Simulated assay, not measured.
Amino acid sequence: MSKSISCFGAVLGLGLALCSVAAPAAEAQAAFPNKRVTIVVPYSAGGITDTLARTLAAKLATLWGQPVVVENRDGAGTIIGTSAVARTPADGYTLLFTSYAYTSNPVLRRQLPYGPDAFRPVGLMGSSHNVLLVTNRLRGQSLQSLIDRAKADPGALKLASSGPGSSPHLAAELFATKAGIRFTHVPYKGQGPSMTDLMAGVVDGMFDGMSSYSLVQAGKVAAVAIASEQRHPGAPEIPTFRELGMDFVSGSWFGMLAPAATPDAVVQQINADMRRVVDNPAVRAQIAKTGMLVSLSTPEAFGQFLQAETNKLQALVKSGVRIELN
């Protein structure tokens, strides 16, 4: 009897020991995610960055079996939302889905509330080229006639943007430099509010991605030219600036980042699941409606892309192009 109890005690002891070893290991290998994930978009609701983030969030929630919430924290040229994510725990549960201003802000602003190494790349989702859009009262105006009007009355041309340092803002500054004109920059907190005022005729024009093409088709705004190497397959009637005599290419990108110390395994999983989402034909069709060209990259390739974008902007500033942020 005592021998049986002794054997049972040994087995029980071994079992408890194994459990005590297995418990921490199970915690360490717990599947990500096991709770809600928040994707912060540093732009207002309604723009292409927000739309893409929400498309991605809905599908990731299905894959993960956990809520994936998009939180718009716009303002200060994306600095408010970006700095908020920089302060969160680096565990993958708070992510940043952002765009062009992420690379332009460190080059164009003297100080930022987060350091240059505050984030690590997760994945580039795609890119979009800028289109010069004008209000309907300027419908029918050629590119040259707009330039002539701006030269005749310097500063009278009012071009909106989704915020200081955004891709539309820099596109307008580059356009003005190449055209030899002056314009008045009217910044907004996101693409949605700026487009509303463009349709209302409050501003004369703005640069925006192909996400606004449906408004062109609906006759709410007019497209003058697209700043790409060749015409967009979804809008072949819009000429490129190069066709109209101006060597001008400009666009934006959209991608996911995480706080710098986020574990490699978590970053790689999020990237792989982003790929699973965009590889879905139905999702690709939905994204195509925004005019964005899908090109999901690895975290490493995205990092190289971001560095190249930074280098290009730094070279532009060094060349003498002056860009003032409000």
Rank of each mutant, 00 (worst) to 15 (best):
Q286E: 15
F254K: 04
E243G: 09
F254G: 01
M274I: 13
V266F: 03
F241C: 06
A282H: 08
S250G: 04
I238P: 05
F248C: 04
V294M: 12
D247A: 09
G291C: 04
N280E: 11
D273C: 00
R284Q: 15
T262S: 08
F241D: 02
Q269S: 02
F254D: 08
E243Q: 14
M246S: 02
A258N: 06
R284M: 12
L244I: 01
V249K: 14
E237M: 11
V283T: 13
V266G: 02
T290K: 07
A301K: 14
S295M: 11
A301H: 12
K289C: 00
V277T: 01
F248D: 02
P263Y: 10
T240G: 08
R275P: 03
A261K: 15
P299N: 05
R284A: 15
M292N: 06
V278G: 01
Q286N: 11
A288H: 12
N280D: 15
E300V: 12
E243W: 05
W253E: 08
L257Y: 05
P259S: 09
V283H: 07
D247H: 06
R275V: 13
A258C: 08
T262G: 08
G245A: 01
F241I: 02
D279F: 05
E300Q: 15
P263R: 11
F248P: 01
D273A: 00
Q268N: 10
P239D: 06
R276N: 01
P239Y: 10
L296V: 15
T262F: 10
L296N: 13
F254C: 03
D279E: 13
P299K: 05
S295K: 14
V278L: 13
S252F: 06
F241S: 02
A285L: 13
M246A: 02
G291F: 04
M274W: 02
P299W: 08
Q268G: 00
A301M: 10
S250Q: 14
Q269G: 00
L293S: 14
L257F: 09
S252L: 05
V294Q: 10
F248R: 02
V267T: 08
T290I: 04
V249D: 09
N271C: 04
Q268S: 07
D273G: 00
S297D: 15
G291W: 07
V267G: 01
M292Q: 10
R276M: 04
D279S: 13
F254W: 07
V277R: 01
M256R: 06
I270R: 03
R275D: 12
M274P: 00
L257V: 12
M274K: 01
I287A: 04
S250R: 05
A288S: 14
V294Y: 09
S252V: 05
V267W: 03
G245K: 07
G255I: 05
R275E: 12
M256L: 15
E243D: 11
